[in-house]
Amino acid sequence: MTLQNIIHKLNEYWMEHNCLIGQPYPGEVGAGTYNPLTFLKVLGTEPWNVAYVELSKRPKDGRYAENPFRLQAFHQYQVILKPAPSNVQDIYLKSLSTLGINLKEHDIRFVEDDWESETLGARGLGWEVWLNGMEITQFTYFQEMGNIELNPVSVEITYGLGRIAMFIQKKDSIFDLEWANGIKYGDIYKKEEYEFCKFNFESADIQLGLELFNKFESEAKRLMEQGLLYPGYDYALKCSHLLNILDSRNAISPDERKNYIARIRRLANSAAKLYVQKDKE
């Protein structure tokens, strides 16, 4: 099964479970959780079911395309079910079956892994799902988002598409994965991966990054003060990615990093508040 087949199957599966098939965020995000389809929509009381692919960027995780698993940009498949159905674990496991994974043959386990994001002011309880010892999915019952307690509780299922495809296609390196027939993951992304590693670790202009962070932060504040939630939140996301790049350039001390994270969190909190307020109106 090619990677695009896997995505297709998952889309079909979650469509059957009444999910809207969403689209990746057009800007850089660190995880599918940052996409407004998750971050904002789990706030408020309206039911919401969505599934989408996200290209998540984690500059520091890059290994110059030399490590078979670790990348600075990787594909996740994100599902949000709100409220969380009572048989959600079974629904998830069935989705693995549709990918041709025989559940009885393998050791599939839900291993405690609580999730917390200081940047988003978010936390949840859940597991990482192990398939023969390999983490293939992050499974979380959100409790708080943007420092707002959630009611109802949403469940977030984040599939590591690369890991799952490597398992299905029996490949040792993500770059050897068949994305489509005859086209490998490496063909599409290997050069890009290497260049972004160069950029993240060596080339990114630190001074520019520091300046942009301040400007984007002010812009986010200004926009949200005008009640422009989505553009404001967009600038908050830009800040978050800039911080990750500055971090991988070793441009900030751990102490400063904490301060930067707190600044982004304040923006995320404002966005969450604004959303809830608009939702009530």
Partner: peptide
């Protein structure tokens, strides 16, 4: 492993790869 009827060979391979 947590399994009754699992395929030991496949599971073993998985464990070794992750390590």
């Amino acid at each position: 492993a947590n399994t009754k009827e699992g395929d030991v060979k496949k599971i073993k391979e998985g464990y070794e790869n992750v390590l």
